[in-house]
Simulated assay, not measured.
Amino acid sequence: MRSDFFPTLTGKSLFRENELVYVNRSDELKQYNGIMHKHDFIEIAYVILGKGLHVVGDQKLSTKKGDLFIVNYDIPHGFFSDPVDGTEPIVYNCVFMPKFLDSSLLGNMYFQDISSSFLFKSIFPEESPKNADLRLKGTEYRDIGDLFHKMYEEYKNMNKGYLEIIRAYLIELIVKVFRLIDNDRQSNISTQNQQLVFQAVEYLRNNYNTDIRLEELAMKSFISKNYFSRLFKEVTGINFTDYIQNLRVDEACSLLKNTDMKVIDIANQVGFRDMKFFYEVFKKLTGKTPGEFRKG
């Protein structure tokens, strides 16, 4: 589906003068209800009433109260009424340019992680959502809904300092949504993805003393290096490098206890080529030097 077939809704047409954010309800901008369109800003859409369809690119997604969608710029999408009973979804929209967020956050590593994972989605199809980015209910629904309502009221009333308050609410919203997406991802790792990691773990256990690279295992799994790295940590709870180091140190401990091999030979046998690095990792993981461990 070519995105140049659809009308573009620009921030300039929505934002007030010298502003980079716009908050509304879908029943207030009806000319864009029920038609495909794209835009030059980031949109967070939250269904508060009703049900229907949300079409994103070539995907048709059933949507209902509690669904949250993140739509990046230049992505064709649109909300449509339910094809069975004609019910329309009512949606809170918060649209903004990245520059609206506090520039001091750009130096914060946690927020950089959010920006890369949330605001600017991966191009890899393995991570494309098959339904809403989040489907909320109960406490989560009320929590996120309250933030949207507060932003909406601040934007509508325009009391002194309203932009600063909206910015604060938006940052809180992004962080909370990121947490929920992360938690949801943790609880919904597919069986196929788990199997890929289990195969990689088996390979590491049999080859930990060789020069194993993350890129090599990712290629064996036919997925990207970055995606494999995140998947590995999601399944095992530990990153790739730490996992290998644990395997090597565990085997070194066994050899120290059960053989008379020299420490340098043990280091080489388990895969360490740098003795100084071996001592650093061993001390970090066991709290002792190899000599102390052997004596203890």
Rank of each mutant, 00 (worst) to 15 (best):
F148L: 05
S128H: 15
F96G: 01
E28G: 06
D85S: 05
Q195H: 15
D67L: 00
M1R: 12
D211M: 08
M109R: 10
Y152K: 04
L170Q: 05
I48F: 13
E164A: 07
G11T: 00
V201T: 12
N108V: 11
D274H: 14
G78Q: 03
T191Q: 05
K283R: 15
V197H: 01
P129H: 11
L214E: 14
E215F: 08
A267V: 02
V21T: 02
I70S: 04
E17G: 06
Y227A: 05
R248G: 02
I35L: 10
K137M: 11
Y169S: 06
A252T: 01
F278I: 15
G237V: 03
T10A: 00
L231D: 04
I44M: 13
G107P: 03
L214D: 10
F228R: 01
L217S: 04
Y155E: 06
L119P: 09
S122E: 09
R248H: 11
N188V: 08
I238F: 08
Y169K: 09
L119N: 07
K156T: 13
F69G: 07
K137N: 13
K121L: 07
I238C: 05
D184E: 11
Y92E: 00
M158K: 15
L68E: 06
T10P: 00
G161N: 07
Y22A: 13
N206K: 09
G86D: 04
P129R: 11
R142A: 08
N24F: 15
E172R: 07
G107M: 08
L53D: 00
S229L: 04
R2T: 08
K65Q: 14
P129F: 13
Q269R: 04
G11Y: 00
D211W: 06
N93Q: 08
N193K: 07
R16V: 02
Q186F: 10
I48T: 11
S104R: 08
P129E: 11
R142W: 08
N268M: 06
P76V: 05
S190L: 08
N226T: 03
F96Q: 01
Y110T: 01
E140W: 03
S122F: 07
T236N: 02
F277L: 13
N159A: 09
D4L: 10
I189V: 14
F41E: 03
A200G: 12
I123T: 13
F293C: 03
G296E: 15
K130V: 06
M275C: 07
K30T: 10
L53F: 00
D211K: 12
N183K: 06
I165A: 14
R167W: 04
M275V: 12
F293A: 03
Q31C: 01
Y243V: 00
F124W: 15
I264V: 09
T10S: 03
N239Q: 00
K288R: 15
S81Y: 06
I189S: 03
S122M: 06
L256C: 07
K283A: 10
F178N: 15
Q192K: 11
K220D: 09
Y152H: 07
V84Q: 10
E154N: 01
G287E: 06
